[in-house]
């Protein structure tokens, strides 16, 4: 799309969409939302960037290498947090018993490992969205 209005508005609005997505992810344990909703928001902002500026420019910003690291990093963060539970208590993905600080319920810094798991899910979902979209539209249908 070569419309100056769409390009300017998109450039203006994408940071706010992403900021809101990060807010939703980090407040997953005190308000509605969480990793899936926030990750979908960030992924959708990247899809919007691809739609407006084209696949080539989007590839420069979010290349295959970055998506590989984001995909694996999300799951690795999740599993390694679970392994902490195995080391300390002997069972997978334990929260309070494994010594994560419970904090003050209702504040952002609470809930033990729940916010960290939400960050892992958010990275995973966002990178999945954008990778699937790139893979589908890269296909040159004759």
């Amino acid at each position: 799309m070569n419309d100056i209005i769409i390009k300017s508005i998109t450039r203006l609005i994408i940071p706010f969409i992403q900021l809101y997505g990060v807010y939703i992810i980090l407040h997953g344990h005190v308000s509605p939302g969480g990793g899936f909703a926030g990750g979908a928001m960030i992924g959708t902002s990247l899809v919007l960037y691809t739609l407006v500026f084209g696949i080539d420019k989007s590839k420069q910003k979010f290349s295959h290498r970055v998506s590989e690291y984001a995909e694996s990093g999300g799951i690795l963060l999740y599993v390694s947090l679970g392994l902490i539970g195995i080391v300390i208590t002997g069972s997978f993905l334990t929260n309070i018993e494994a010594g994560f600080p419970i904090g003050n319920p209702g504040s952002v810094l609470s809930g033990g490992m729940i916010p960290l798991l939400m960050v892992g899910i958010g990275i995973k979902v966002a990178s999945t969205f954008i990778t699937l979209f790139h893979t589908l539209i890269e296909e040159e249908v004759v």
């Binding site: 899936f36 699937l132 893979t135 589908l136 296909e139 249908v141 004759v142």
Partner: peptide, 24 residues
């Protein structure tokens, strides 16, 4: 249902990729 939504997204993407291949 949060789990179910993820599964439906995966199924949709998979079938869309199959449709692309069928069209080719």
């Amino acid at each position: 249902i949060l789990t179910g939504i993820v599964v439906v997204v995966s199924i949709t993407v998979y079938s869309l990729s199959l449709v692309i291949r069928i069209y080719e």
